[in-house]
Amino acid sequence: METKPDERFVKPKLSTRVMRRPEFGALIGALSIFVLFAYFDQSGQFVKLGGIARWTDVASTEGIMAVVVALLMIGGEFDLSAGVMVGSSGLVLGLLVTKVHLNLYLAILLTLIFGGLIGLLNGYLVVKTKLPSFVVTLATFFLLRGFNLGFVQLWTGTVRVDGLHNAKGYEGVYRALATTVWAPNQFNVDIFWWIGVTILGSWVLTQTKIGSWITAVGGDANAARNSGVPVRNTKIGLFITVSLAASFVGIMQCIKFDGMQASQGVGEEFTYIIAAVVGGCLLTGGFGSAIGASIGASIIGIAFIGISFANWNTDWNYAFLGGILFAAVSVNTYIRRRAERAKK
């Protein structure tokens, strides 16, 4: 059969292709907000290394979670228990070390297993019941939230678990997860974990078949199944990844602050989702970027630290987040319409 080049097809210009990237909007947003807070900065430290060390520390813990939450969202699901899982995991680690007197390394391993199991439970319930993950993980969220407070108070009589620094091996773990480097700027090592998770997430998403499957499952689960993608396992795997990452962040924070508050992490799940959405993830699934989610986390870090450096009341943090979210979703919707525009 004879073919001729499609004269309607014009290779988009480089600038157009860059603008169509899901990360593009977030990058512009991050730069604008950085400039904004550099302008309003009262301390004179914001644009210096010390200031950057502050906001990258915030962005790191948000960013590790934002990347995995982005993958889950691209896979078409939500995990509302992701925030509280950070708290639960920190508490589990704290209790295992200070109350059960387990070896620190063993306790960390058990905490990660706990995280994986909660993820498995979330994922299994979602694919088994076919209920929206929003509802299933909302239930997990409240269950964990209740357990965090109830169980910790029952066992310790307080709402906080602390005193891990006496455990054997604490120094080494602290150096790996929570210490600061490059004095006197005090960059936290969690930045390296954040960068590592971002690279890994992006690699999986763009270079491996799992990445194709995640996008396909979130784009159209039926079509993915018809094409031979293991839809259920892909989704369950994503839930496990998110919970594992939450456990990891919980362990990091528990080591960093030498303990855990029972209410830690509650509400953070939405911050992760905001970071992912600001980074170009569609709420409907099937589209997004791991690097974008990390940039989204940077925006949150810059805004939170920027607000305090500007001597504004930090109560405004959340209003700021809301504004960013709304702007980002508007931009993303516009981008998606362009990407999806069919020649029907």
Binding site: T215, A216, G219, F287
Partner: peptide, 12 residues
């Protein structure tokens, strides 16, 4: 029922 609109042609 067998293609994902937001996925590239080769990935599909």
């Amino acid at each position: 029922l067998a293609t994902i609109p937001l996925l590239s042609i080769w990935r599909n």
